[in-house]
Design a protein around this nucleic acid. Structure first.
Lengths: 113, 113
DNA sequence: TTCATGGTGTAGACAATCTACGTCATATGG
DNA sequence: CCATATGACGTAGATTGTCTACACCATGAA
């Protein structure tokens, strides 16, 4: 097996946040979530299935999202996820955590003259 | 041993960039690098020694920084690191990678209305 | 001479991501 | 009616970076 190159691990730490944010628009299944993130990010963020599904299960286990089997637009069975109340709270937390990191890194990159 | 809580792993993926950027100001030893990043980020980024030294060795092994034993301001022996030419190039790469990630995530967080 | 301080370092745990697969059910085309 | 493509879900194992918790050494100061 080809080793997972760290250079592709662009998402590290932000995937949960991206998924939670996407579900604000309403319930969606895994495929659709990944597609949405890829489209909105203009192809900059590509979520692999080996990252996507473990992340969804992780978030569900933590109670931040809840799942339900349904039939997709294309008539295939799919697992629809929705934000839970605590998930919504967690989204705020993660969003501010990202903001903090972003500001801090920016400060180091271009410090005040 | 208390397990490493993922909540503290704020730095994942950005540490190399921060170190390289810091060395633009001139050679510095590990302690000083960590201190600089912490100060400039206004305490938002705290680099633990268990992250710092492996990172420095990693960067040195990749040829992005070079080291030399010297005596510090406080009269202690310290390993001074400086940016190499390829390290300077790498800094540009990492900086633009960060910029890309930052823009992409921001797009997902607040998409065009 | 003792001790605090400054500085470097390692070991081991852990979590997140990746690649590379496999699986199943439905829709579609002949 | 059957074969095949497609949509969708899933797991295994490798790799990596960060963390906590230590240990170590040399110098300055009391």
């Amino acid at each position: 097996m080809t080793p997972a190159s760290p250079r592709n691990q662009l998402l590290y730490g932000t995937l949960d946040l991206l998924i939670l944010r996407t579900l604000v628009y309403g319930p969606a299944h895994g495929h659709a979530i990944a597609g949405h993130i890829q489209r909105v990010s203009e192809d900059a963020l590509r979520i692999e299935t080996g990252s996507l599904y473990p992340a969804l299960h992780r978030l569900e286990a933590r109670g931040w999202i809840a799942a339900e089997w349904k039939t997709s637009d294309k008539g295939k069975r799919a697992r629809y996820y929705r934000l839970t109340r605590t998930g919504r709270r967690q989204l705020v937390v993660e969003q501010s955590r990202w903001q903090q990191l972003s500001v801090a890194v920016t400060r180091v990159l271009r410090p005040a003259e």
